[in-house]
């Protein structure tokens, strides 16, 4: 319990710093940035309390908002996927999740990708809807969700492969 707490706190700080220092300055094609801090919510231990997850997701979103001066849109998107996570887990892992035996270090590659894709696009859709905040810009919202989403998914997979080797 104690080591998992330290692991999660250091993960929180590392992901926030990586996001605001590196990944927010990518500006690929002028406006495409990956939002990799959602890996914290994606790989938060399943057996821990759901209330903790929702609250900590709000905190990480608000921290990102503070750095990016974006009001509360990252916090809203993070809380949304934190609440949706059990549903997305069930869709991607099926019975494995139902029996509560799931551990992120030992799961298969296929379901993991579909889980990350679902989580990323849910997050980005809420995020960019709140950023543009207008129905007339739906096409722009979907376009940005798609492009940034692809970028985030690819980077998340790469990062999760790099860092899962260590824990084995």
């Amino acid at each position: 319990m104690n080591s998992s707490l330290i692991l999660n706190i250091s993960r929180f700080i590392m992901l926030v710093l990586a996001q605001v220092i590196i990944f927010n300055n990518v500006n690929f094609y002028g406006y495409i940035n990956p939002y990799i801090y959602i890996l914290f919510i994606a790989f938060f231990p399943v057996r821990d309390n759901r209330l903790t997850l929702i609250f900590v997701s709000f905190l990480i979103g608000l921290t990102i908002d503070m750095f990016l001066d974006s009001g509360g849109m990252h916090a809203a998107a993070s809380v949304f996927i934190a609440y949706m996570r059990p549903l997305l887990l069930r869709w991607s892992f099926g019975t494995l999740y139902e029996h509560q035996t799931i551990r992120f270090t030992t799961i298969d590659f296929g379901p993991k990708i579909s889980y990350l894709i679902l989580l990323t696009f849910a997050h980005h859709l809420v995020l960019f809807t709140l950023e543009f905040f207008s129905i007339s810009k739906t096409i722009l919202i979907l376009q940005k969700t798609l492009f940034c989403g692809i970028f985030t998914v690819i980077l998340s997979i790469i990062l999760s492969i790099i860092f899962s080797r260590k824990t084995k």
Partner: peptide, 13 residues
């Protein structure tokens, strides 16, 4: 928390 975040977002707009 979602409503709180929404309030912050609307203020920022």
């Amino acid at each position: 928390l979602f409503l709180l975040a929404l309030v912050f977002t609307i203020q920022s707009h």
